[in-house]
Design a protein around this nucleic acid. Sequence first.
DNA 1: CCCTGATTCGC
DNA 2: GCGAATCAGG
Length: 234
Amino acid sequence: MSWTDERIDTLKTMWEGGQTASQIAEALGGVSRNAVIGKAHRLGLQSRPSPVKANDADKAAPVAAAPAPAPAPTPAPPPPPFATVPAPTPAPAPVRDEVEADDEPAMAAEAAVETPTPTPAPQPILRSVGPGGFVRQSPGEQQPPATPAPPRRLVPAKPSADIAGKTTLLDLNDRICKWPLGHPGEPDFHFCGDKVNPGFPYCVEHCGHAYQAQLPRRDRRPPPPLPFGGPRVR
DNA sequence: CCCTGATTCGC
DNA sequence: GCGAATCAGG
């Protein structure tokens, strides 16, 4: 597999979009995670936060009132819509509680402004809107977010609520079944997601569908036309 | 163990 | 230029 312009473009877009090298490799197909990383470096793509590289000791936090990063006055924008694959449906807006959302900017601003009363060093509550759609909290609230665990990595918003909890293209890896369920373009298109039959791309059950005993020539069906024109359809 | 990105180095 | 092997942190 070679690095065509299109594949390089996909790599750049996904890399800059925050996709992991593994995800990019899966999406591209035919390349390893290492290949993606190597290519990214050769392309001069700036390294993103690496788990290996020790973070710079930038202690530059001149604001005495808030050593920890206070919530920005303006909410951080959600990750830009990003089409790894033809999106079955337009990406929905991030799930946000209407009422909370309305109050939020004021609350955030209030938190940022110096309060006359010496505030007993309130721990800034990590508040963000993740692609998973967990709801922001107001500073005073102590309840856990509506959606318990934020995704460990920012990813583009899921294209459809129909595939919530299901295995999407970006969820694929070497050890889960890649057997497609439904059809690309349908809102609930997803993948099996079971643990693979070791050494195969599918689970045991779907290996039974994918791999069948060779039939005598006279009994074979002519091969069906390829369902897809190529890896990328624009 | 799993994951991650960075780097090296033979091809 | 490419990418497997290797390294090293989370």
